[in-house]
Amino acid sequence: MFSGSSSFVEGVDLAFFVIIGISLIFLIGITFGMIYFSIKYNKKKHPKAEPTVENTKLEILWTVIPTILVLFMFYFGWAGYRPMRTFPDDAINIKATGKMWAWSFEYENGKWDSVLYVPINKAVKINLYSMDVIHSLYIPAFRIKEDVVPGINNKMWFKAEKLGQYNILCAEYCGLRHSYMMSKVVVLPEAEYTAWYNTKQKVDLNAMPGELAMKKIGCVACHTTDGSKLVGPSYKGLFGSMRKVVVDGKVIEVKADEDYIINSIRKPNSQVVEGFPKAVMPEYKDQVTDEEIKQIIEYIKTLK
Protein backbone atom coordinates (compact mmCIF):
# COMPACT_ATOMS: atom_id res chain seq x y z
CA MET A 1 0.00 0.00 0.00
CA PHE A 2 2.68 2.47 1.01
CA SER A 3 5.89 2.33 -0.92
CA GLY A 4 8.62 4.82 -0.51
CA SER A 5 12.24 5.63 -0.91
CA SER A 6 13.44 3.18 1.72
CA SER A 7 12.41 -0.29 2.81
CA PHE A 8 11.10 1.09 6.13
CA VAL A 9 8.57 3.50 4.68
CA GLU A 10 5.88 0.87 4.27
CA GLY A 11 5.91 -0.29 7.90
CA VAL A 12 6.19 3.20 9.36
CA ASP A 13 3.45 4.67 7.21
CA LEU A 14 1.18 1.73 8.03
CA ALA A 15 1.68 2.50 11.73
CA PHE A 16 0.84 6.15 11.00
CA PHE A 17 -2.30 5.06 9.17
CA VAL A 18 -3.50 2.73 11.92
CA ILE A 19 -2.83 5.10 14.83
CA ILE A 20 -4.19 8.22 13.13
CA GLY A 21 -7.23 6.26 11.98
CA ILE A 22 -8.14 4.98 15.46
CA SER A 23 -7.37 8.41 16.95
CA LEU A 24 -9.66 10.19 14.50
CA ILE A 25 -12.57 7.88 15.31
CA PHE A 26 -12.05 8.61 19.00
CA LEU A 27 -11.59 12.37 18.52
CA ILE A 28 -14.60 12.79 16.24
CA GLY A 29 -16.78 10.57 18.44
CA ILE A 30 -16.05 12.40 21.69
CA THR A 31 -16.23 15.85 20.09
CA PHE A 32 -19.51 15.02 18.43
CA GLY A 33 -20.80 13.68 21.76
CA MET A 34 -19.83 16.87 23.58
CA ILE A 35 -21.49 19.12 21.02
CA TYR A 36 -24.59 16.93 20.77
CA PHE A 37 -25.05 16.79 24.55
CA SER A 38 -24.50 20.51 24.98
CA ILE A 39 -27.28 21.19 22.47
CA LYS A 40 -29.69 18.45 23.45
CA TYR A 41 -29.26 18.84 27.20
CA ASN A 42 -28.88 22.59 27.21
CA LYS A 43 -30.58 23.98 30.29
CA LYS A 44 -33.08 25.89 28.17
CA LYS A 45 -34.43 22.69 26.69
CA HIS A 46 -33.58 20.41 29.56
CA PRO A 47 -33.97 22.42 32.76
CA LYS A 48 -33.78 19.47 35.14
CA ALA A 49 -30.78 17.14 35.09
CA GLU A 50 -31.50 13.47 35.55
CA PRO A 51 -29.76 11.80 38.51
CA THR A 52 -26.45 10.11 37.79
CA VAL A 53 -26.65 6.33 37.86
CA GLU A 54 -23.32 4.57 38.24
CA ASN A 55 -22.65 1.87 35.68
CA THR A 56 -19.74 -0.42 36.48
CA LYS A 57 -20.13 -2.45 33.29
CA LEU A 58 -19.71 0.69 31.21
CA GLU A 59 -16.63 1.69 33.21
CA ILE A 60 -15.02 -1.69 32.67
CA LEU A 61 -15.92 -1.58 28.99
CA TRP A 62 -14.31 1.78 28.37
CA THR A 63 -11.18 0.75 30.22
CA VAL A 64 -10.77 -2.60 28.50
CA ILE A 65 -11.53 -1.52 24.92
CA PRO A 66 -9.00 1.33 24.87
CA THR A 67 -6.44 -0.98 26.45
CA ILE A 68 -6.89 -3.45 23.61
CA LEU A 69 -6.75 -0.64 21.06
CA VAL A 70 -3.52 0.86 22.41
CA LEU A 71 -1.85 -2.55 22.52
CA PHE A 72 -2.90 -2.94 18.89
CA MET A 73 -1.29 0.44 18.10
CA PHE A 74 1.81 -0.55 20.04
CA TYR A 75 2.05 -3.67 17.88
CA PHE A 76 2.02 -1.72 14.62
CA GLY A 77 4.56 0.71 16.02
CA TRP A 78 6.80 -2.15 17.00
CA ALA A 79 6.32 -4.08 13.77
CA GLY A 80 7.27 -1.06 11.67
CA TYR A 81 10.26 -0.43 13.87
CA ARG A 82 11.72 -3.90 14.32
CA PRO A 83 13.37 -4.05 10.87
CA MET A 84 15.21 -0.80 11.65
CA ARG A 85 17.04 -2.52 14.51
CA THR A 86 17.61 -5.83 12.70
CA PHE A 87 20.93 -5.27 11.03
CA PRO A 88 21.69 -7.40 7.95
CA ASP A 89 25.13 -9.01 7.82
CA ASP A 90 25.94 -8.08 4.24
CA ALA A 91 25.54 -4.31 4.64
CA ILE A 92 27.97 -1.75 3.31
CA ASN A 93 29.64 -0.03 6.27
CA ILE A 94 29.86 3.72 6.27
CA LYS A 95 31.11 5.90 9.09
CA ALA A 96 29.16 9.13 9.53
CA THR A 97 30.71 11.89 11.58
CA GLY A 98 28.70 14.78 12.91
CA LYS A 99 30.37 17.92 14.10
CA MET A 100 29.16 21.44 14.70
CA TRP A 101 27.75 21.98 11.99
CA ALA A 102 28.60 19.60 9.17
CA TRP A 103 28.36 15.94 8.23
CA SER A 104 31.04 13.78 6.67
CA PHE A 105 30.82 10.20 5.46
CA GLU A 106 33.75 7.82 5.26
CA TYR A 107 33.71 4.57 3.30
CA GLU A 108 35.51 1.27 3.90
CA ASN A 109 38.19 2.05 1.34
CA GLY A 110 39.02 5.34 3.02
CA LYS A 111 37.10 7.49 0.58
CA TRP A 112 35.13 10.29 2.21
CA ASP A 113 32.64 12.92 1.17
CA SER A 114 30.26 15.47 2.68
CA VAL A 115 27.45 13.91 0.66
CA LEU A 116 26.29 10.36 1.30
CA TYR A 117 26.37 8.23 -1.88
CA VAL A 118 24.63 4.86 -1.64
CA PRO A 119 23.62 2.15 -4.12
CA ILE A 120 19.97 1.32 -4.67
CA ASN A 121 18.48 -1.86 -3.16
CA LYS A 122 21.50 -2.60 -0.99
CA ALA A 123 21.68 -2.52 2.77
CA VAL A 124 23.79 0.32 4.10
CA LYS A 125 24.88 0.40 7.72
CA ILE A 126 25.90 3.73 9.16
CA ASN A 127 28.10 3.94 12.22
CA LEU A 128 27.58 7.25 13.95
CA TYR A 129 30.32 9.32 15.56
CA SER A 130 30.21 12.77 17.04
CA MET A 131 33.21 15.05 17.38
CA ASP A 132 31.59 17.37 19.91
CA VAL A 133 27.98 17.44 21.13
CA ILE A 134 24.90 15.34 20.37
CA HIS A 135 23.55 15.48 16.84
CA SER A 136 20.90 13.33 15.22
CA LEU A 137 21.08 11.98 11.70
CA TYR A 138 17.64 12.29 10.16
CA ILE A 139 16.53 11.31 6.68
CA PRO A 140 12.79 12.14 6.58
CA ALA A 141 12.20 10.45 3.23
CA PHE A 142 13.57 7.16 4.66
CA ARG A 143 11.68 7.60 7.99
CA ILE A 144 14.86 7.04 9.99
CA LYS A 145 16.66 8.94 12.68
CA GLU A 146 19.27 8.05 15.28
CA ASP A 147 21.16 10.28 17.67
CA VAL A 148 24.87 10.85 17.12
CA VAL A 149 26.21 10.82 20.65
CA PRO A 150 29.84 11.57 21.53
CA GLY A 151 31.50 8.63 23.23
CA ILE A 152 28.76 6.19 22.22
CA ASN A 153 28.79 4.32 18.94
CA ASN A 154 25.20 4.36 17.78
CA LYS A 155 24.33 2.84 14.45
CA MET A 156 21.50 2.74 11.94
CA TRP A 157 20.82 1.06 8.64
CA PHE A 158 18.57 1.41 5.62
CA LYS A 159 17.96 0.09 2.14
CA ALA A 160 17.15 2.78 -0.41
CA GLU A 161 14.55 1.70 -2.95
CA LYS A 162 14.20 4.71 -5.21
CA LEU A 163 16.84 6.63 -7.13
CA GLY A 164 17.19 10.27 -6.27
CA GLN A 165 18.43 12.80 -3.75
CA TYR A 166 17.03 13.16 -0.25
CA ASN A 167 17.72 15.59 2.58
CA ILE A 168 19.86 14.68 5.57
CA LEU A 169 19.09 16.92 8.54
CA CYS A 170 20.33 17.28 12.08
CA ALA A 171 17.41 16.69 14.45
CA GLU A 172 19.09 17.20 17.83
CA TYR A 173 19.69 20.82 18.76
CA CYS A 174 23.43 21.45 18.58
CA GLY A 175 23.86 25.20 18.78
CA LEU A 176 24.24 28.20 16.55
CA ARG A 177 24.00 26.70 13.07
CA HIS A 178 21.88 23.64 13.95
CA SER A 179 19.35 24.39 11.21
CA TYR A 180 22.11 24.61 8.59
CA MET A 181 23.65 21.24 9.43
CA MET A 182 22.33 19.61 6.29
CA SER A 183 23.53 17.24 3.65
CA LYS A 184 22.11 14.92 1.02
CA VAL A 185 21.89 11.23 0.45
CA VAL A 186 22.24 10.38 -3.23
CA VAL A 187 20.87 7.00 -4.29
CA LEU A 188 22.70 5.68 -7.37
CA PRO A 189 22.22 2.64 -9.60
CA GLU A 190 24.57 -0.09 -8.43
CA ALA A 191 26.99 0.19 -11.37
CA GLU A 192 27.22 3.94 -11.02
CA TYR A 193 27.85 3.59 -7.31
CA THR A 194 30.60 1.02 -7.84
CA ALA A 195 32.24 3.28 -10.37
CA TRP A 196 32.05 6.21 -7.93
CA TYR A 197 33.33 4.06 -5.07
CA ASN A 198 36.32 2.86 -7.05
CA THR A 199 37.41 6.21 -8.41
CA LYS A 200 40.12 7.60 -6.25
CA GLN A 201 39.23 10.49 -4.02
CA LYS A 202 38.96 13.43 -6.34
CA VAL A 203 42.01 15.28 -5.30
CA ASP A 204 42.51 18.73 -6.51
CA LEU A 205 46.12 18.40 -7.56
CA ASN A 206 46.70 22.02 -6.74
CA ALA A 207 45.22 21.62 -3.26
CA MET A 208 47.60 21.40 -0.34
CA PRO A 209 47.26 18.54 2.17
CA GLY A 210 46.26 21.06 4.83
CA GLU A 211 43.33 22.27 2.75
CA LEU A 212 42.06 18.71 2.35
CA ALA A 213 42.51 18.01 6.04
CA MET A 214 40.47 21.08 6.95
CA LYS A 215 37.67 20.08 4.61
CA LYS A 216 37.58 16.60 6.06
CA ILE A 217 37.60 17.78 9.67
CA GLY A 218 35.00 20.36 8.81
CA CYS A 219 36.79 23.57 9.85
CA VAL A 220 35.23 25.33 6.87
CA ALA A 221 31.74 24.96 8.37
CA CYS A 222 32.61 27.96 10.54
CA HIS A 223 35.77 29.58 9.12
CA THR A 224 36.18 31.00 5.63
CA THR A 225 39.31 31.39 3.57
CA ASP A 226 38.19 34.54 1.75
CA GLY A 227 38.05 37.03 4.63
CA SER A 228 34.27 36.92 5.20
CA LYS A 229 32.98 36.31 8.71
CA LEU A 230 30.94 33.16 9.34
CA VAL A 231 30.90 31.87 12.94
CA GLY A 232 34.59 32.17 13.73
CA PRO A 233 37.29 34.40 12.25
CA SER A 234 38.46 33.88 8.65
CA TYR A 235 41.85 32.33 7.87
CA LYS A 236 42.67 34.96 5.31
CA GLY A 237 45.68 36.99 6.33
CA LEU A 238 45.78 35.19 9.66
CA PHE A 239 49.32 33.90 9.80
CA GLY A 240 51.79 36.36 11.26
CA SER A 241 49.16 39.01 12.00
CA MET A 242 48.62 40.59 15.40
CA ARG A 243 45.35 39.47 17.01
CA LYS A 244 43.35 40.97 19.84
CA VAL A 245 42.22 38.05 21.97
CA VAL A 246 40.32 37.74 25.23
CA VAL A 247 42.20 35.82 27.91
CA ASP A 248 40.48 35.48 31.30
CA GLY A 249 38.28 38.45 30.52
CA LYS A 250 41.14 40.75 29.50
CA VAL A 251 41.96 41.79 25.97
CA ILE A 252 45.58 41.26 24.98
CA GLU A 253 47.41 41.34 21.66
CA VAL A 254 49.22 38.26 20.45
CA LYS A 255 51.01 37.25 17.28
CA ALA A 256 49.32 34.51 15.22
CA ASP A 257 52.29 32.19 14.93
CA GLU A 258 52.47 28.40 14.84
CA ASP A 259 51.92 28.02 18.58
CA TYR A 260 48.89 30.28 18.34
CA ILE A 261 47.29 28.06 15.70
CA ILE A 262 48.06 24.86 17.61
CA ASN A 263 46.55 26.38 20.72
CA SER A 264 43.51 27.57 18.78
CA ILE A 265 42.79 23.99 17.72
CA ARG A 266 43.65 22.18 20.93
CA LYS A 267 42.35 24.73 23.43
CA PRO A 268 40.32 27.25 21.45
CA ASN A 269 38.55 28.78 24.44
CA SER A 270 41.68 29.83 26.30
CA GLN A 271 42.01 32.77 23.89
CA VAL A 272 39.02 33.85 21.85
CA VAL A 273 39.40 36.59 19.25
CA GLU A 274 37.74 39.78 20.41
CA GLY A 275 34.22 40.19 19.06
CA PHE A 276 33.56 36.47 18.68
CA PRO A 277 31.39 34.41 21.05
CA LYS A 278 33.30 32.33 23.53
CA ALA A 279 33.00 28.59 24.08
CA VAL A 280 31.47 27.90 20.69
CA MET A 281 34.35 25.86 19.29
CA PRO A 282 35.01 22.47 20.88
CA GLU A 283 38.51 21.39 21.88
CA TYR A 284 40.00 19.12 19.23
CA LYS A 285 42.13 16.40 20.80
CA ASP A 286 42.52 13.04 19.03
CA GLN A 287 40.15 14.12 16.24
CA VAL A 288 43.09 16.02 14.68
CA THR A 289 46.61 14.56 14.52
CA ASP A 290 49.81 16.60 15.02
CA GLU A 291 50.71 15.81 11.42
CA GLU A 292 47.41 17.29 10.20
CA ILE A 293 47.99 20.40 12.27
CA LYS A 294 51.37 20.89 10.60
CA GLN A 295 49.70 20.62 7.18
CA ILE A 296 46.98 23.03 8.25
CA ILE A 297 49.58 25.59 9.36
CA GLU A 298 51.38 25.32 6.03
CA TYR A 299 48.10 25.88 4.24
CA ILE A 300 47.08 28.86 6.36
CA LYS A 301 50.44 30.48 5.65
CA THR A 302 49.46 30.63 1.99
CA LEU A 303 46.16 32.47 2.62
CA LYS A 304 47.32 36.03 2.38
Partner: peptide, 15 residues
Protein backbone atom coordinates in the same frame (compact mmCIF):
# COMPACT_ATOMS: atom_id res chain seq x y z
CA UNK B 1 0.23 7.93 20.76
CA UNK B 2 2.16 8.52 17.53
CA UNK B 3 5.14 9.51 19.70
CA UNK B 4 4.77 6.46 21.91
CA UNK B 5 4.81 4.03 18.98
CA UNK B 6 8.38 3.15 18.03
CA UNK B 7 8.05 3.29 14.24
CA UNK B 8 6.31 6.65 14.10
CA UNK B 9 8.35 8.17 16.92
CA UNK B 10 11.56 7.44 15.05
CA UNK B 11 10.29 9.70 12.29
CA UNK B 12 8.65 12.31 14.51
CA UNK B 13 10.93 12.74 17.52
CA UNK B 14 12.74 16.08 17.65
CA UNK B 15 10.51 17.53 14.94
Amino acid sequence: LLLGALATDTHLTDT
